[in-house]
Nucleic acid binder design. Structure first.
Lengths: 135, 135
DNA sequence: CTTATTGAATTACACTTGTAAATGAAAGGC
DNA sequence: GCCTTTCATTTACAAGTGTAATTCAATAAG
């Protein structure tokens, strides 16, 4: 009964398309997959069906073909995957993980500045919260 | 022939123990696994064997039992997993990912400051590089 | 109406993963 | 030297994944 079904690597590709443009037909999904992915129609339909079984997506009949739409939000799924990744690789330590990314990734000056702004905002928000009497 | 074998979730737990203290016997691995993991000895030995097959670890006989040690570094594996995660969930955009984590994770003031320091350092390093004539 | 086409649903099949049990081999106990 | 214990190796087996082919059902073409 867990809220968010486990979505496999291939299924993620399908979900990303559906999140981007739903409702959408199987045919359109095939077309909108990134060019470097070369799956047969059948393969794509298999993934669609598995996502249906997992209740990750739903559909509405529209004459001959189905229009699929997400039943779980990208937000939720990203969060779930991130949690799982974090736990597996960094034992759950978010700051460790961010540190690692900051050090490994080559970020542009712009990006670094943006991140600093976000951090500063977060800091200010927390200070405000701390100065309130705790409920 | 890819450098870093794919390490499953359970196998990661084993690897983390081996990275922490190697060379190490199967028995010790069992003992050093986090307390909330309850695998039978056999299960742990299965994972160890799979890691051997994948060439993620090696061993040296020492009389009755084996002493296992890593053949791939934690660094490498973390990097590989991160890449894979990044690609799957964020389409490869590292800054997006970091942003997301900063916003979702509850970081303490200390952690935020530490991250800011890291960012500042990175920024300074990049400026230095930029002021050099490009090779 | 019969046939060809086009989705969707079912079936397939090998590989991985989680979870062990069974078997084999070596070493220690007596 | 035989029996038990203890590792390691082999085998097991169901669920999930990657990758489709096959079958079924409805629609379009003639």
């Amino acid at each position: 009964m867990q809220r968010i079904p486990k979505i496999s690597e291939s299924e993620w590709e399908i979900m990303k398309v559906i999140w981007r443009s739903s409702p959408i037909t199987a045919e359109q999904i095939v077309l909108q997959l990134p060019a470097d992915i070369e799956w047969s129609d059948q393969t794509v339909r298999t993934f669609i069906n598995r996502l249906l079984k997992k209740n990750a997506i739903g559909f509405e009949k529209s004459g001959r073909s189905y229009h699929y739409y997400p039943l779980v939000s990208e937000q939720e799924c990203v969060r779930a995957e991130s949690q799982s990744f974090l736990k597996r690789v960094f034992g759950g330590a978010a700051d460790l993980m961010v540190t690692n990314f900051l050090e490994e990734a080559h970020l542009s000056d712009k990006e670094i500045e943006r991140l600093q702004r976000i951090l500063t905002e977060k800091q200010e928000k927390q200070e405000k919260k701390d100065s309130r009497p705790k409920a």
